[in-house]
Design a protein around this nucleic acid. Sequence first.
DNA 1: AAAGATTGAGCCTTCAATCTTA
DNA 2: TAAGATTGAAGGCTCAATCTTT
Lengths: 160, 160
Amino acid sequence: MANMDHLLNIYHGLQQIYVLLDDGDRRALRAVGLTPTQYNLLLQVRAREGATITELSQVLLCTRGNITRLVQRLAQQGLVHCRGDERDQRLVRVSLTQQGALRLEEARTVYEAAIHRRLSALDLPSQEILHTLVEGLIAALTADLAIQPAAPVEAEISEA
Amino acid sequence: MANMDHLLNIYHGLQQIYVLLDDGDRRALRAVGLTPTQYNLLLQVRAREGATITELSQVLLCTRGNITRLVQRLAQQGLVHCRGDERDQRLVRVSLTQQGALRLEEARTVYEAAIHRRLSALDLPSQEILHTLVEGLIAALTADLAIQPAAPVEAEISEA
DNA sequence: AAAGATTGAGCCTTCAATCTTA
DNA sequence: TAAGATTGAAGGCTCAATCTTT
């Protein structure tokens, strides 16, 4: 437990990196009228033509309810299109519209340029190492998720 | 530009790590009735007794408006307290209440335990390396922030 | 009953506009 | 004018409840 401070430092650093990356993405994507979230959703919809709400919620690590409303907003802008599955009427299948595909391509250019500019501060060997560490950490965190389910709320909140 | 895919992988991995960490934090902190954001704010308020809204917005890398409302909610719960500065009536000085200090201490226990459990998947040498890389990346991203200001919106959105 | 999708409530966040004090 | 704080609008997110289809 002697290295707790060290772990907290790393932890805080990872949070900070996320905030900085997201902020940069937002600035870059503003030029094409998309948010980082919308960009990522469009990207997944292109990669999985006809993906369902549940499928998208799994790859984007969020709730179904969230996806439902993200898709609603994108559909309103005419960038994606929903249709019911023929076999199973419960499923909603999402796909890109022509306009959505165009917008996504515009966005990809500015987005990747922004990432390249910011991450190329790392030299090649650093990139390799970071890649390895990141993969390992994701595996560990995903495993932890399975071990620690919905948090039983075993402690009553102090006051009252 | 041959390593663009590699950079995108790292980038995506960092995003994923953030989401997984945040999700774990939320589960752990639910037991004491705080969100990750509230926990981080309380932590900063304790570290900087009497911090102003602007000061907090700077260390937490977000807008002043956001802090204003976070503080409002925490004050409503009786965890923080606001007072006007005597010299300069524009400043709002935030501090922990007794209740806030207690709650924060409860939270710190479960929070640090959760981090320790998840990050100790990394062995010591990996922790060292990751720490170095994270610091470097933060420096690079912060520098980029200064270079690339508010995004002039130079491109008109295609449609219309 | 179980699975997919949606919705209501509430918190978090940015951006732009406003109000107050210096 | 400038700086600090707040607020309105809109998007993003979780959680829990509900509605529909299997």
